[in-house]
Design a protein around this nucleic acid. Structure first.
Length: 823
DNA sequence: TCACAGTGACTTTTT
DNA sequence: GTCACTGTGA
């Protein structure tokens, strides 16, 4: 299209005097970002500044007014949810945007790879292995290595792939010192290639490789995608950056959107330098900052800004609220988790009383384990909750079982799927039989199913019968899929390269192509002739014939689980897909790439409080947010320093900026972790906030229990904090002078109530804490030390049994509550 | 092959 | 405190 030239050539956007309404409603910076053309564009979009709106408007604008083919636009996001939202909102502005390629990075990789699989010697019917599968594969290849180490290695391999490092990359030794690692990684790759499958990392790495090695495919791809938009760019990794670089030709318009202050996935390979140095790598980059925040009150943005300003190496932004007014955030200093739950419940009830709904509220925490206290107590209090992201549907044993049968059906070389289900339920096929079959398969270049067939002749008794039963299930299932569609392998050929606009997987769809086929009934329903059959039929058959139904029903009865129900949920989910190989492949890919699937429709719509990790809140917003567990040692952990600490600070920033109207923060003096009780200091992040900007929560004049009874004694007085481990131990700047003494209400009045506390502390470190010593604790009274162990950084850890019978552990270095008594 | 008890480990986790 | 892995014994 001629418009493509215009796009690449012109520097000044053509500003019409009369803007269309969808453009006129943008603020000046947003409009600038939408209209910009010519050079690469970096949109620095702070939290709540209308980032998605800008991207979707830009896509619509390009199609509507700049005459771009929607097919030539590629927009990548990190989550399926974000991709879905972007697709819907763009299509709302301009229906043709349906045809743009709006996908997650990984889904785009899979899409590309299926079309060009042959270029890396893959068959396009590959299945995508998740981290568990990778671990299993490693364990199968190296049974002498424990499962746990396999898991560790698998995650190292995943990380290596995030950095686009191969087993023989020189840089690999710089990042991973383990001598064996290269060998293990290489072996893993070999075994993975033998299965014909790929892992998540491959979905980025292999397309990058293809684009680097195959000039024809590269040229075709660059020809096709004239515009590339990347969302959440701050969380892209090195491999994704390289892919972007190879997708972009000289005439490609590249626009990335992100917020360096919200980069929170370093531990998964996210490379914040991608965004920090974008304009160096793409010369001539135009940067647009979006700083007008439409989500939160300024009171909320202020403390968020306080906190994140302690980070170095920022591009620098200051959010300005567009909503006037707003109450100060409230900090509640509590004794322990029970009070924290109680506090949250109280906030919830108050909110309800004021006419708010439960779904307005989110309770945030750092670790999943912290959700338990709420889960236990909320039902008793009649508070409905929705737990986000903990035990995910697809991770459930029974779901993985069913999926493994199906993966095996699609790719009979899938060793991991085979191992998972060949003896489930037990069919008398132990490890030795399975290894025998797999040796035969690997040795003879057979699929595992064919190897089973060959092996069954040489087996006897229970194992033989079991194997034949298993083969029977697989054969019948395969027959149901029928011959009605071409084998998956043939698909890559008819579909050409990345520029193919049609094909079994159509452009931006997520299931539509196959469903369309089902609707038309074209060749559908191979197994019966009563209309177009769905994949659900096949699934049901597999579940019953394999014996999984009976097996898991038994488990349900023993353990009170609902595995059978979950499998049925899976059947329901698959009923949207046609009973064809394509349908199966597409369903599997959807499941593999979108792990957010939630069983049960009502779960989404129910009015309930959201319990969620801070990480999982990225991109979300709630009218009322409670950020819990703001304690040193938990958030941040004591071992987090330097870049890690800065990432935690960004995580806190993300958490704070989720709140639209009200924000509450909680910290507990006592925290149970791993079954032990720790005395904690408040999170250093709290001390980074200007005390003028928040209030201490008070339980109110009513007869309610005073919730902040003890904690304030050690907060935020400088000496008390220094006496606690956290800030002082981490070598941070002194806190003295940060706070205004006792003027902040009753909480502060007690701050200096313990003369000599610091001295006590200092003497505690050097001298004796030994077994048998009698001690006195402020709260638990008298007790005896039953064990002392020495830690590297925290001095002695003493375990005390109190007269009440209670056993607790203390680091004398960190607590002032424990004293030794002479006998 | 299975069931059990002992051991040790333990952030966060878009895909 | 909880879970998953591991080794043992039936």
């Amino acid at each position: 299209m001629a418009s493509d030239d215009r796009l690449a050539g012109e520097r000044q956007p053509a500003r019409g005097t009369h803007l269309a309404p969808y453009l006129a409603s943008l603020n000046p910076e947003q409009l600038e970002a939408v209209l910009h053309e010519g050079s690469p564009l970096l949109i620095l979009a702070g939290a709540g500044t209308g980032k998605t709106r800008v991207i979707t408007t830009k896509i619509a604008y390009l199609v509507k007014e700049r005459g771009l083919q929607p097919e030539s636009i590629l927009a990548v996001t990190f989550t399926n949810k974000a991709a879905r939202e972007m697709r819907e909102r763009a299509a709302m502005l301009e229906p043709r945007c349906e045809r743009a390629v709006i996908r997650t990075f990984h889904s785009f990789g899979a899409w590309f790879l299926r079309r060009n699989a042959a270029a890396v010697g893959l068959d396009s019917n590959f299945v995508i292995y998740d981290d568990d599968d990778s671990t299993e594969l490693l364990h199968a290849a190296l049974p002498q290595i424990s499962k746990q180490d396999c898991k560790r290695y698998a995650s190292l391999i995943a990380r290596a792939k995030d950095y686009n490092l191969e087993p023989d990359s020189p840089d690999l030794s710089a990042s991973i010192r383990d001598e064996d690692f290269r060998r293990i990684y290489a072996l893993y790759e070999k075994r993975l290639r033998e299965t014909g499958n790929v892992d998540f990392g491959d979905l980025i790495r292999l397309p990058t490789k293809i684009l680097g090695e195959d000039a024809a495919i590269a040229a075709r791809t660059k020809q096709r995608f004239r515009v590339i938009l990347v969302d959440e760019y701050q969380d892209s990794n090195v491999a994704q950056f390289l892919l972007l670089q190879r997708l972009a030709g000289p005439g490609t318009y590249v626009c990335v959107v992100g917020d360096d202050d919200q980069s929170i996935y370093k531990f998964r390979g996210a490379e914040i330098r991608n965004i920090l140095s974008f304009s160096k790598i793409f010369p001539g980059t135009k940067t647009v900052k979006l700083e007008r925040n439409y989500r939160s009150y300024q009171t909320i943005l202020d403390i968020a800004g306080d906190v994140v300003s302690h980070n170095s190496g920022r591009l620098g932004k200051t959010l300005r609220a567009t909503k006037p007014g707003g109450a100060k955030p409230q900090l509640a200093l509590l004794d322990d988790q029970d009070q924290e739950v109680e506090f949250c419940a109280r906030i919830v009830r108050t909110h309800q009383k004021q006419g708010g709904s439960l779904s307005d509220i989110a309770i945030l925490y750092r670790t999943n384990a912290q959700s338990l206290a709420f889960e236990k107590d909320f039902p008793r209090k009649g508070i409905a909750y929705r737990l986000v992201g903990a035990l995910r549907f697809y991770e459930r044993e029974e779901v993985k079982d069913v999926l493994a049968y199906r993966a095996l059906l699609l790719n009979p070389r899938d060793e991991i799927a085979f191992r998972r289900v060949v003896n489930k339920p037990a069919r008398g096929l132990g490890d030795s039989s399975v290894d025998l079959i797999l040796d035969r398969a690997l040795g003879g270049g057979l699929s595992v199913i064919d190897a089973c067939r060959e092996s069954s002749g040489s087996m006897r008794g229970k194992g033989k019968a079991g194997l034949e039963q298993f083969l029977g299930v697989m054969d019948r299932a395969a027959a149901m899929l029928g011959r009605s569609s071409p084998p998956a392998a043939a698909r890559a050929a008819d579909d050409g390269g990345a520029d193919a606009a049609e094909g079994p997987y159509s452009l931006a769809d997520g299931g539509k192509a196959a469903r369309r086929a089902a609707g038309k009934g074209k060749d559908g329903g191979a197994a019966n002739d009563s209309g177009p059959a769905s994949l659900g039929v096949l699934l049901e058959k597999i579940i019953s014939a394999s014996g999984l139904a009976g097996y898991h029903r038994g488990q349900d009865e023993i353990a009170g689980t609902q595995k059978l129900a979950n499998m049925e949920e899976l059947v329901n989910a698959s009923a949207l897909y046609p009973l064809l190989r394509e349908g199966l492949a597409e369903f599997l890919e959807t499941i593999e790439l979108d792990r957010s699937f939630q069983a049960g429709e009502d779960a989404e719509n129910r009015d309930a409080v959201t319990l969620i990790t801070m990480h999982n809140t990225k991109g979300l917003e709630f009218p009322l947010v409670i950020v819990t567990g703001l304690e040193q040692g938990l958030f941040p952990r004591d071992d987090e320093e330097g870049e890690d600490l800065e990432e935690q600070r960004r995580l806190f920033y993300v958490a704070l900026t989720r709140a639209k109207d009200s924000l509450y923060l909680t910290a507990c003096r006592w925290r149970r972790m791993r079954g032990r009780l720790f005395e904690t200091a408040p999170s250093r992040f709290l001390t980074e906030m200007d005390p003028e900007r928040y209030e201490f929560w008070k339980s109110g004049a009513s007869a309610s229990r005073p919730v902040q009874a003890h904690f304030p004694r050690s907060f935020p007085g400088a000496r008390a904090i220094a006496g606690h481990g956290g800030a002082a131990a981490a070598g941070s700047r002194p806190l003295a002078g940060s706070y205004g003494g006792a003027s902040r209400g009753p909480a502060m009045a007690e701050t200096s109530a313990r003369p000599g506390a610091g001295a006590h502390n200092a003497s505690a470190q050097g001298s004796e804490w030994r077994q048998g010593q009698t001690v006195y604790h402020d709260e638990y009274g008298q007790g005896a030390i039953i064990k002392v162990s020495l830690t590297e950084n925290s001095g002695p850890l003493v375990i005390v049994q109190f007269e009440s019978g209670k056993i607790a552990e203390f680091f004398p270095k960190y607590t002032r509550k424990l004293e030794r008594i002479k006998e």
